[in-house]
Design a protein around this nucleic acid. Structure first.
Lengths: 346, 346
DNA sequence: CAAATAAATGAAAACGTTTTCATATTTGCA
DNA sequence: TGCAAATATGAAAACGTTTTCATTTATTTG
């Protein structure tokens, strides 16, 4: 009853009043604008400090039409690769005076749509997205394109041309390197457990796989190729199927590390010696692949490089926003190199 | 040159104009307010849809003084426990119509302070924090308390009373369970590698450890107790020290899983049989502890329960915001139970 | 030293909502 | 049918900034 319901924050007007200046001047001082005397600026800053003033971002954004906030939608922050990308981006953006809003789609298309809307409502200055695996139609991002808000897709990106910045790993090369490595080691029956071909990632990795097979004159064996959701369970099922069949694989290229780990566990349980009888290559260099025994050979995607590239491209866009290069239909793609990390599973 | 610089978003006024209604009515319809005819409401919603209207959250928040956004500061999203907590919270909040803004302090106090300021500038309706390990002074959060903005600390919480909602795991019990388990198995020389005692987490876990020792009449051995930053390197150093000493431990209770893993790796390299010669217990049930061989016994903290509890307590606060219970100096603590997960390392 | 220019400040509008208060319309009931 | 109460709408102010434009003050220049 004694205190008011909500202690009032100090505003620019309070500073103005205390200093017998106009709000305009305060604003200029606070934004280190040019048209303000050094002395007044100091006085304002001191008084702001004294009054515990914090800029109201709502008001500021509303008026200036920029939020200094960048949105990000990822499938899951717990995924090692994405966590690294996020961290890099956040660090970089913070230095540049931007905030980052992170949201998870949980790999649900419905959620992705809702989040895109929310992000737009929040009027983020730009949006960075790694899509769900089901996203084939990208129209829920149109609103960003239409309002000229920079849009970045990374990792999981549109398969059709779309007016956005694209940053992705070299999946084709990754698939090729993994498979070539196995063939180079003398494997003749390299299986592929890939994600669904609706996503650029798995398309690329699978094509790399096929390229390598072709190059080594090994025919593809449809019984050894799986396109499915990359869950633990699905991986086991695939393995069971293959090892019940008449021709057993001598190597598996798994399009992600979770699957590679599941494959390794299957091998353990069925007393299949790794790498002697079965060699395994994963994808992404998840921290678990290094710790498991035998450690798993995998493809490093350099998430930090991806993050850096994203910020770099984004800043280009955000700063030269003035001159209209509206004619461009699709921005250029950046492709980040990958690297094979050889471990004990091969 | 043809297109305008930034395609104008449709506002409430555009809808109003199209429908020959006042902005007030549109606003009411959009917020399913009560004082609006069902028919007009439908007309408005349809037109909003047609014009691709999206509420401008800046304007809305500014006027209504609530953002429907909740902020969150964690040390690192890549930490398994935090990632789970975040995901749970985000899912729950989304159902309730709130957005979540996540930021990482990277365990830097300086960063934490900056982020707290930014969060306040963003006028989040509430803030959820897991502090850095160095945070002993909490005054950078005072501004939230002063403005009556609900504040939740979880996991890493103030050691002194502070007017905030507290949700934490039962660290004391966790430490006790881990140590008791080892003693029960006949270990006589249980080492402790703990984090620094500036944080409630490690205070609790260490006290639990000591309680168990006392209960089993085992004297503490200072050469086997370490309080240090829980890095991989520090863990190795501690192990080297102990195994060079005259009395070697027969078990290690590591206050986190990264350290437990490092201990296991040290054992592997020095041909110390786990669990026969050395038993290991970690803390947090990181996904890696299950995958490594031998798998590591650890303490489950039930991050999902933590997340749920946080949202529950928060909502209590946010909804009954009206009646002033201002006299309370500190909110109640919630303590989430823990559980020992026995694996092959013991 | 006056005129011209530059620098510093102020007044007021604007951003897109929500909300209060007033007004118009409909409904309920005697 | 008439009048109060309930329902539906509108007008205008407000939220806290930034920004444009005007004005004052200080500085330069011929």
């Amino acid at each position: 009853m004694s205190k008011e319901k909500k202690q009032q924050d100090n505003t620019i007007l309070d500073i103005a009043e205390a200093l017998k200046l106009s709000p305009a001047t305060i604003s200029r001082a606070l934004n280190n604008g040019n048209y303000v005397k050094a002395e007044t600026k100091k006085r304002v800053l001191d008084m702001a400090e004294k009054l515990g003033y914090r800029r109201n971002l709502m008001a500021s954004s509303l008026r200036s039409n920029k939020t200094n906030t960048i949105g990000m939608i990822v499938p899951r922050i717990a995924m090692f690769f994405h966590a690294e990308v996020i961290t890099t981006i956040q660090t970089q953006l913070h230095k540049l005076g931007y905030n980052l809003i992170i949201s998870q789609s949980g790999d649900s298309l419905q959620m992705e749509k809702e989040l895109a809307n929310t992000m737009f409502s929040s009027r983020v200055d730009a949006l960075i997205v790694a899509c769900t695996l089901q996203t084939e139609d990208f129209s829920h991002f149109d609103v960003f394109v239409n309002s000229n808000t920079p849009l970045v897709f990374y990792d999981r990106v549109p398969t059709k041309p779309y007016k956005a910045i694209i940053v992705k790993g070299d999946d084709y090369r990754g698939g090729y390197l993994a498979t070539q490595h196995l063939l180079e080691l003398g494997c003749k029956k390299v299986a592929l457990i890939s994600g669904p071909l609706t996503t650029n990632l798995y398309i690329g990795r699978s094509m790399g796989y096929k390229k390598a097979l072709a190059q080594y004159n090994i025919p593809e064996n449809d019984d050894h190729i799986f396109y499915q959701l990359l869950t633990h369970e699905n991986a086991r099922k695939a393995m069971e199927k293959m090892f019940k069949g008449k021709v057993k694989p001598d190597a598996v290229f798994a399009s992600n590390d979770v699957t590679a780990i599941a494959v390794l566990e299957f091998a353990r349980e069925h007393n299949i010696a790794v790498p002697e009888e079965l060699k395994i290559v994963g994808y992404s260099n998840d921290s678990r692949t290094e710790i498991i025994r035998p450690s798993i050979t995998t493809i490093e995607q350099f998430p930090k490089e991806v993050g850096k590239k994203i910020v770099e491209e984004l800043m280009k866009k955000l700063t030269k926003k003035t001159n209209e290069t509206d004619t461009i239909v699709q921005d250029e793609e950046s492709i980040i190199p990958v690297q094979l990390i050889r471990r004990m599973s091969t």
